[in-house]
């Protein structure tokens, strides 16, 4: 099976490349949406006096996370069909991935902002910073690595969920796996499984590196000392 898979890989590099690009494209679109929405929501609910809303939002998002991807696809297909929107292909998959990406990003943005040392904020205020400046100059820079960690989690998870999305016609690296299952072609299954796994592992490592690079230098030193 592995030998045949390798043969297939060599012969169909262009196809696999196409699936990989499709896969990455879906991930990027969905996660850009998730970051924009998630960070905005995260900042919003971290505001003073919004603890109740925050708890609700995070709880709701965490329930969303428990819904299995195949089920969410099914439910989204139902909703999209009743709105006369395309119920298969790119759209339901991007929506599902965005929803799944939201929780880690909202939660991490929220906790990162909430956990900024109050002394630091007070110092900022003492130096005459306004609330917006405090957010932009103190809270967000300190939150960026934590938000990155949330994104990493979201993206790695979404690579797997996007693979399942191939089944509803969104393309990507799930395609060879499903074809393989349907036609008892173990070589196709192996190629797809290995490629999608490698993609997830590589992205995980790269994002981990990125998380480190976006950590402000001073904080990095502190983290190192801790570990």
């Amino acid at each position: 099976m592995w030998q045949e898979a390798w043969q297939y890989f060599l012969k169909n590099t262009d196809k696999i490349l196409k699936w990989t690009v499709q896969h990455i494209y879906i991930i990027i679109v969905a996660n850009v949406c998730a970051v924009i929405i998630g960070v905005t929501v995260g900042i919003f609910i971290s505001g003073k006096g919004r603890e109740r809303i925050a708890e609700m939002v995070i709880y709701f998002a965490s329930i969303m996370m428990t819904i299995p991807s195949l089920a969410l696809y099914g439910i989204l297909m139902g909703i999209l069909a009743s709105l006369s929107l395309p119920s298969i292909g790119f759209l339901p998959v991007v929506i599902a991935l965005t929803l799944y990406g939201l929780l880690p990003i909202i939660r991490n943005t929220y906790t990162a902002i909430r956990e900024v040392d109050p002394d630091m904020i007070e110092a900022g205020r003492g130096m005459g910073m306004g609330e917006t400046q405090i957010l932009l100059k103190i809270k967000l820079p300190l939150a960026v690595p934590v938000i990155m960690a949330g994104m990493r989690q979201a993206i790695v998870m979404n690579i797997g969920i996007a693979a399942i999305g191939s089944y509803i016609g969104a393309g990507g690296l799930g395609q060879p796996i499903f074809r393989g299952i349907a036609n008892y072609r173990t070589d196709l299954i192996a190629v797809g499984a290995v490629c999608v796994s490698l993609l997830a592992i590589i992205v995980d490592v790269v994002m981990g590196r990125l998380e480190w690079l976006t950590t402000p230098k001073g904080v990095r030193i502190r983290l190192r000392r801790k570990s």
């Binding site: 499984a193 999608v196 997830a200």
Partner: peptide, 15 residues
């Protein structure tokens, strides 16, 4: 844990 579930299922089915 980073390996997608579909990959797991696919390989298990194949093997």
């Amino acid at each position: 844990q980073t390996v997608p579930t579909l990959a797991f299922i696919g390989i298990a089915g194949a093997v």
